[in-house]
């Protein structure tokens, strides 16, 4: 990587979060000396704000998928995502990439009907169970009985098709 200030190879890499935004700067030894950042105690990008133009890299650099641990750096380097949750986490940096990569950005192909309906089913069971629990906690037994019937119907439905 080149120095932010001249064309030399950078050896000093600064990272700091200011107002929730990641600021990065790469400097060569000489420029780092000149800007007085070689002293770690003095190492503050905000001190340099007026001297060096800063590269603002939005929030992308700090992105990390909590599900699998993939970082934005890793994605940038290897071009691979680690899990399905990565597609939510990295969506903001992914979208502009997809635009140039593909014929469009919306899936127009096959729909996995089985997976879709099974997932929907799991989700409705899950939310019914949650509602049931709420109803019981609130001692709304009429509602609870109604929800219990619905749940039983749904569960019987899968047994019948399984």
């Amino acid at each position: 990587m080149k120095c932010h200030h001249c064309d030399n190879q950078s050896t000093v890499h600064l990272t700091q979060i200011l107002n929730g935004q990641m600021h990065k700067m790469d400097l060569c030894e000489g420029c780092a000396q000149a800007k007085g950042v070689t002293n770690p105690e003095n190492l503050s990008i905000s001190n340099l704000m007026d001297k060096v133009e800063l590269e603002v890299d939005s929030n992308a650099a700090s992105m990390v998928c909590e599900s699998c641990g993939t970082t934005h750096q890793e994605f940038k380097k290897g071009g691979r995502l680690g899990c399905e949750a990565c597609y939510h986490v990295f969506r903001p940096v992914l979208d502009p990439l997809l635009d140039g990569m593909h014929a469009g950005t919306k899936h127009l192909g096959k729909v996995p009907a089985g997976s879709e309906s099974r997932i929907q089913f799991e989700q409705s069971i899950h939310s019914l169970k949650k509602d049931l629990q709420d109803a019981v906690e609130k001692e709304d037994y009429e509602k609870a009985a109604e929800l219990r019937d619905k749940l039983r119907d749904l569960e019987n439905q899968t047994k019948a098709t399984a």
Partner: peptide, 16 residues
């Protein structure tokens, strides 16, 4: 159950 998104389709390790 496949990893699938209504908008992005089948989710793969490489976005390509």
């Amino acid at each position: 159950n496949y990893a699938y998104d209504g908008e992005l389709g089948f989710l793969t390790a490489c976005p390509t």
